[in-house]
Design a protein around this nucleic acid. Sequence first.
DNA 1: CAAATTTAATTAAACGTTTGTTTAATTTGC
DNA 2: GCAAATTAAACAAACGTTTAATTAAATTTG
Lengths: 208, 208
Amino acid sequence: MVDSKTQDKRDDILDVAEKLFSEKGFEAISIREISKAAEINIAMVSYYFGSKEKLYEEVVNRKLISSEMIIKYIEQHETYTNKLFAIVDMFINKFFERRDFQNIIFREMAMNQRTGMAELITNRLHQNFSVIQDVIENGIKHKEFKKVDVELTVMTIIGVVKTYTTSCSIACRVLKIDDPEKVYDDKYKKRLKKHLKELLVTHLEIKL
Amino acid sequence: MVDSKTQDKRDDILDVAEKLFSEKGFEAISIREISKAAEINIAMVSYYFGSKEKLYEEVVNRKLISSEMIIKYIEQHETYTNKLFAIVDMFINKFFERRDFQNIIFREMAMNQRTGMAELITNRLHQNFSVIQDVIENGIKHKEFKKVDVELTVMTIIGVVKTYTTSCSIACRVLKIDDPEKVYDDKYKKRLKKHLKELLVTHLEIKL
DNA sequence: CAAATTTAATTAAACGTTTGTTTAATTTGC
DNA sequence: GCAAATTAAACAAACGTTTAATTAAATTTG
């Protein structure tokens, strides 16, 4: 069994690494910076994780949303409309609370480096996207939604949320927000949810 | 006056650097890699551009879309609907032909490093977004569009295109495309344009 | 117009840093 | 007293940049 105190230390390092990696990227952050921020010796990263790359893999792996989680989250809702709305809520919530992490994910997606890592992420993301796709497809089949380009509709949902959370400085300017931290206020979270749902209501011709 | 042969060499280096930076990011690419790919001596980068950072700045600067270009492109269209459609066409065209470059831009946006560079990009992007915003706002004012959340609608337009072009591997999986290069086929370009326009038509309640 | 001279382009080698990782010694907790 | 945790120091490799020497091109001169 893993010592709980040791686990805490590991988690500390993972948290710090996640924050730094997300801010500046994998290559731009040195083990020395991570060690300093986590207040540990440089050698401890190799000691705990083996290498910088393996540390990074663990950072990514531990926070990926599982499609099972999404399915469990939406299965309690009756109509496809409500399932879809639940997905919107969930995704925006997750993106807002894990905004640091999302930066890592989508930066990794935009590159073809570290192919193993990219493949892992692609697989997991695709699973998540498939859940959304299924809901929309079933909604169409049951005449709850109008026929649309399902795949691109999925990308639209992700695209809006992703752009909002990963291009914070642009969001600030567009929304005329003075303090970058306010971008993640509840006020704007609600506004984003409202916008995305209205967009889907008209696009899918949902009758409320 | 700058020698045209020298200018060609510079452009060669800029092209190679753009490709490599876009694939793996600024920090992950060394001057030695760039030199090798461009078939020049390592010292030539410093000689031509001063430093790696200044080379990067030039890579970014020379390909940013100017808002003047957008304005000129759309002013020939009469209705706000056609202006908006022209914007959609233009953005998708630009994103498709400059997909390498877009990776750089949005990676830079997601980070807060190199603050000077980020600020430059933010300013330029914001100008471009403002043009779209103006069109939508005026369309609403002239009753051509329904009242919507204009700012988030702008982010939606950008978000879809951006997600499509900068997450190629995900686009492949979602759209069931076997060869990554096909993602940028005309077929899919048309499909994306069609989807985005239909999305806007319903969202803004445009009567065609 | 060719030779001489100056300027620009290009090169290989070396520079000092910083990188990720390892080693071997020391401290800590049980 | 022993194993695990932690440390400081050292490692080779790679980094961006600079240097000083050489070649190529352009300009001036006789």
